[in-house]
């Protein structure tokens, strides 16, 4: 199948999924017994409002319409780039979300980079030294970190590095005293959250790369390279790693959901002003427009990651391009 058509076909499958997830989120949120007015204003305050004011508020939030009506109005507005007005702040939901995006991108970007570096370094080294002490330690640690709740890791690191040693800040993105933005300050605040994100995400990738390196290192052409007397470094990095990286590259596209899921929890613990913490805050206060917007944003991001992974596979493995569809 030719490349353009494949990309188009694969891309066009994304839209129905986005519809699906928006309908699902909408239904779940709107079927809930939580009253958005009460959740937003607080029970006491809501009961103080006059009934007609309450009705007016509900009408202005569109809550007086039937469910399908609310959904179609929401959808029509989304096509115009309007995600509604945040109940909590009274500002457009999109603006509320947009101002939180950079913080999350900084955290996730750093975490992602660390995941790539960690998994390539540790994956390759432990495959190279299979069954040595290094390999066994690395395997044991991967299993342990894979089974560790990320919030627990965050708390323990905060205790060690912030409370006991006093080296790093406990939370936030900048110290409250700082009036202007400074990169070293951001870096100091970033170390712990990014480390937690990377440590809790990478074990799986380390294991995967190790396994795929071992598979490649057992192939005949590596034996040939060894027989030719090529230096070990060249065999590992030029011959083996290049092939082992193929499946790994596409896997990195699928890392987005892990990173987003991790970011939500980590941002909440470290009071990192990103979209993950915004999700928890708005969900707890029943701020529908923001929660819907974020759900939409996250699924776009995840689907885009899957899509890119598929496309990347086309480029690194031409067999799929000519052999029909990728599964």
């Amino acid at each position: 199948m030719d490349l353009g058509r494949y990309i188009f076909k694969r891309g066009s499958q994304l839209l129905p999924l986005l519809f699906g997830i928006s309908i699902l989120a909408f239904l779940l949120i709107h079927l809930s017994p939580v009253d958005p007015v009460e959740a937003c204003l607080g029970k006491e305050e809501a009961s103080l409002l006059a009934p007609e004011d309450l009705a007016g508020l509900r009408a202005s939030w569109g809550l007086d319409r039937p469910l399908y009506g609310q959904y179609f109005i929401w959808l029509a507005h989304v096509f115009q780039g309007d995600f509604g007005i945040s109940h909590l702040s009274g500002r457009p939901a999109l603006a509320v979300i947009a101002e939180r995006i950079p913080a999350t991108l900084v955290l996730m970007g750093t975490g992602y980079l660390l995941v790539v570096v960690l998994s390539i370094y540790l994956g390759v080294t432990s495959a190279k030294r299979q069954d040595t002490f290094f390999d066994h330690t690395c395997t044991a640690l991967s299993f342990i970190f894979y089974s560790t709740p990320n919030f627990w890791l965050a708390l323990i690191l905060v205790y060690l590095f912030s409370v006991k040693l006093g080296l790093l800040p406990v939370c936030g993105m900048a110290s409250p005293k700082a009036l202007t933005f400074s990169l070293p300050e951001l870096g100091r605040h970033l170390i712990l959250p990014a480390a937690v994100l990377a440590l809790s995400t990478s074990p799986w990738y380390i294991r995967f790369l190790r396994a795929s390196m071992l598979e490649v290192l057992a192939l005949d052409y590596i034996l040939l390279a060894r027989a030719k007397g090529l230096p070990e470094k060249m065999i590992i990095f030029k011959h083996a790693l290049r092939n082992a990286l193929l499946p790994f590259l596409t896997l990195l596209g699928l890392a987005f959901p892990h990173l987003i899921g991790g970011a939500v929890v980590i941002e909440t613990i470290f009071a990192w002003p990103g979209v993950g913490r915004l999700l928890v805050e708005s969900a707890l206060r029943a701020d529908y427009p923001v929660v819907m917007g974020l759900t939409f944003l996250f699924s776009v991001f995840v689907l885009l990651g899957n899509f890119l992974a598929d496309i990347a596979y086309l480029f690194v493995d031409p067999r799929i391009r000519y052999g029909g569809e990728a599964d």
Binding site: P16, L17, L18, G20, I21, L24, A25, L28, I29, S32, P33, V34, P257, H258, I260, G261, V264, V265, L279, V280, A283, L284, A286, V291, T295, F298, S299, V302, L303, N306
Partner: peptide, 23 residues
């Protein structure tokens, strides 16, 4: 397609959204 839809959001996010709106 239902499976794909559910998989297009990280589980933890879907759980947070649902649990926040139900008790």
């Amino acid at each position: 397609r239902v499976v794909d839809t559910l998989n297009s959001l990280p589980n933890i996010i879907l759980s947070i959204v649902i649990l926040a709106f139900f008790k």
